[in-house]
Design a protein around this nucleic acid. Structure first.
Length: 644
RNA sequence: GCCGAUGUAGCUCAGUGGUAGAGCACUUCCUUGGUAAGGAAGAGGUCACGGGUUCAAAUCCCGUCAUUGGCUCCA
């Protein structure tokens, strides 16, 4: 007999060789049906495998992340099985679960998979899953495993096995299919009731672009058909929030082939939106003691040779601009920092001057790889809400914390609640990617870690994500489809002050190096607007929206009254317009709703007689009658609340 | 940059070798209305661009450009 204890503290005895499913059955048959995976003493076990030792058992279902991962991992096996049915010469590589499903990387040889094939793959997948094959693990020696895959002419699996310890190599069989596998499966394939192949794309073996390119087949599977339908619904919703679609509809920005790839053109409404965002930040920065500076869009190549940017990115950037003079070269600026360093140097600094904080909405140009361009989130010309803080060593932490406050203020105002603060440090293995000495790096990394801790930020540490000149604190947010983007960033830099020979005179009358903090709370205005659009689904807060109020006369007869009302509202600094079209009021309301104008005023005989306006709120409907003063107050109060 | 897909009217899209289509938007006219689509007529396209095959190409083939889903990259 063995003793099994449960998370709630209960204990039960079972015969040796009992399986996790048997144990679940002893509690309830419903649980036994629902469990996808289990752990014994924290180790994942196969639900159907016999247990010979006492321990603590835990069950996981679809409602747990652990359950989903195992479900999707098992689905990847079935996907591979399905692919082999259609493409028997396929070489399998790896097939892990991901946040929203799973993928399998396969080498199809000469074959290609097209979107048109997805349906037949899905059909076959479910057909195979319905066989309710059990997943069974077995061990093999390293030599046996290597021989097996060598005989199958599969160099990928051979490479994987070569990196494994003998004695730890296991395979998983189900039906006629076998795969190298660490383990952790659902009881049988029959639990997979629905599957959707979402895309097929190229992916390099082991993520290295020098390696052969494989075909990565993405899928997502569910234990119930209705869950798949809900998922498809979610994708539809996400499409509606896509900033590229909303940007077009709201006439914010466009692209032109003739201007060039990745070079956004801001339309008037978009430009005005940006202006409001910029003014908002400028006001906050003024309060925080920033000084505005302005620098040109190009700079001498020497400037970037000095900063190290040219060595690091020169070959993959827009190439130098020539002048009529031999040997004279300029670069489109990829960064504002070198210019700001020169501004710092324009006059001698004393410790009494520090910290100095130079801020500029600086437009920079980076030659991003063509395949990487994406709407406004990844472009080749964009404006950073950049600032560089020059301070003494003692001031670094305090300044850093003040910047964190500024970023959080912006996030709060714009209702970004779901963000991660990522501490981006050096790659532990590959130090050659970075400039500057170890001692300074360590100082900078510690300053960030401490400042984040003192601000009680929830942080994750990512190694290898630092900039080449210093570590960063990055604020990451997700777009409508769950893709993660970096918005705000704060970076501590001991290197550029060194390279640009920046100094200040200390109280000891000696020369000292200042420390630089690079920071951009929005990051890039382009990306920020994109993420903001997706976040609020195009329904901007009142202080930001283009038209706050639409005045809808019930008929042409009231157009003049509407114009008079418009003037009144303008006097209150309310942005409004009159819909003078010869349409019925129902039609005007519908169009205004679609345009996402927050407030509507219906104006007809009733309103003119009573001297009260009828107000509607977008998405909410009729709010009733208001005096004009009263309505104006409503608007100004709402804006005040939004901006705190 | 690499792998796959896509490119037809301002927008969303149909059109598998035989005279370019729909809905919405737009223009004009009728309608003058009460809280999410009133009616009619009209205008609008070198089917991304360049080659090729064919009696004939939006449609088939090749190339280029752009967009897009991934991979890699991201100062």
């Amino acid at each position: 007999m063995i003793n099994i204890s449960f998370p709630d503290g209960n204990q039960k005895s079972f015969d040796e060789g009992v399986s996790a499913i048997d144990i679940a059955k002893s509690i309830s048959s419903q649980l036994a049906k629902a469990i996808l995976t289990a752990t014994l003493n924290g180790e994942t076990i196969e639900p159907g495998a016999p247990i010979y030792a006492s321990g603590e058992i835990k069950f996981f279902t679809w409602d747990n992340i652990e359950g989903k991962k195992v479900f999707w991992h098992s689905s990847a096996h079935v996907l591979a099985q399905t692919i082999l049915e259609f493409y028997p010469n396929t070489k399998l590589t790896i097939g892990p679960p991901i946040d929203n499903g799973f993928y399998y990387d396969v080498d199809l040889g000469e074959e290609t998979i097209h979107e048109a094939d997805f349906e037949k793959i899905e059909k076959k997948f479910i057909e195979l899953a319905r066989q309710k094959a059990e997943f069974k693990m077995r061990s093999q020696t390293k030599q046996e495993a290597l021989d097996y895959y060598k005989s199958k002419n599969n160099p990928y699996k051979v490479e994987l096995i070569e990196n494994l310890e003998d004695g730890t190599i296991t395979f998983c069989d189900h039906a006629n299919f076998t795969d190298l596998c660490r383990g952790g499966h659902i009881p049988n394939t029959g639990l997979i009731k629905a599957v959707k192949i979402t895309s097929a794309a190229g992916a390099y073996w082991r993520g290295n672009e020098n390696n052969p390119q494989l075909t990565r087949i993405y899928g997502v599977s569910f234990p119930k058909q209705t869950l798949l339908e809900e998922y498809l619904q979610f994708l539809e919703e996400a499409k509606k929030r896509d900033h590229r679609k909303l940007g077009k509809e709201l006439e914010l920005f466009t692209f032109s082939q003739r201007v060039g790839q990745g070079l956004p053109l801001w339309l008037p409404k978009g430009a005005m939106l940006r202006e409001r965002l910029e003014n908002f930040l400028k006001a906050a920065q003024k309060k925080a003691g920033y000084l505005p500076v302005i620098s040109p869009h190009i700079g001498s190549k020497e400037l970037y040779v000095c900063s190290g940017h040219y060595e690091k990115y020169g070959a993959d950037s827009f190439q130098p601009i020539q002048t009529p003079h031999e040997g004279e070269e300029f670069l489109l600026k990829p960064m504002n920092c070198p210019h700001h360093c020169e501004i710092y140097k324009s006059s001698p600094k004393s410790y009494k001057d520090l910290p100095v904080r130079f801020a500029e909405f600086g437009t920079v140009y980076r030659y991003e790889q063509s395949g990487e361009l994406h709407g406004l989130t990844r472009v080749r010309g964009f404006t950073q809400d950049d600032a560089h803080l020059f301070c003494t060593n003692d001031q670094v932490k305090e300044e850093f914390k003040n910047v964190i406050d500024l970023v959080l203020y912006i996030f709060k105002t714009l209702d970004f609640k779901d963000y991660t603060a990522q501490i981006s440090l050096r790659d532990k293995e590959n130090r050659s990617k970075y400039i500057g000495d170890d001692a300074n790096w360590e100082k900078a990394e510690n300053a960030i870690i401490e400042a984040a801790a003192e601000k009680e930020l929830n942080t994750v540490i990512e190694y290898g994500e630092a900039a080449f000149y210093g570590p960063k604190l990055d604020f990451m947010v997700k777009d409508a489809l769950g893709r993660s983007w970096q918005l705000g960033t704060i970076q501590v830099d001991y290197n550029l002050p060194e390279r640009f020979d920046l100094e200040y005179t200390g109280a000891d009358n000696q020369k000292h190096r200042p420390v630089m903090i690079h920071r951009a709370p929005f990051g890039s205005m382009e990306r920020f607007v994109a993420v903001l659009l997706e976040h609020c689904e195009g329904k901007f807060p009142l202080w930001l929206v283009h038209n706050q109020v639409a005045i809808l006369p019930v008929s042409d007869k009231y157009n003049e009254d509407a114009q008079n009302l418009l003037k009144l509202l303008n006097n209150y600094d309310i942005r409004a317009f009159v819909d003078e079209r010869s349409e019925k009021v129902g039609r005007k309301i519908r169009d205004t709703e679609i345009q996402k104008v927050p407030y509507m005023i219906i104006l007809g005989e009733k309103e003119i007689e009573s001297q009260k306006i009828s107000v509607r709120r977008q998405g909410k409907g009729d709010l009733g009658s208001f005096g004009v003063d009263e309505f104006a107050k409503l608007i100004t109060e709402e804006i005040k609340k939004e901006l705190n």
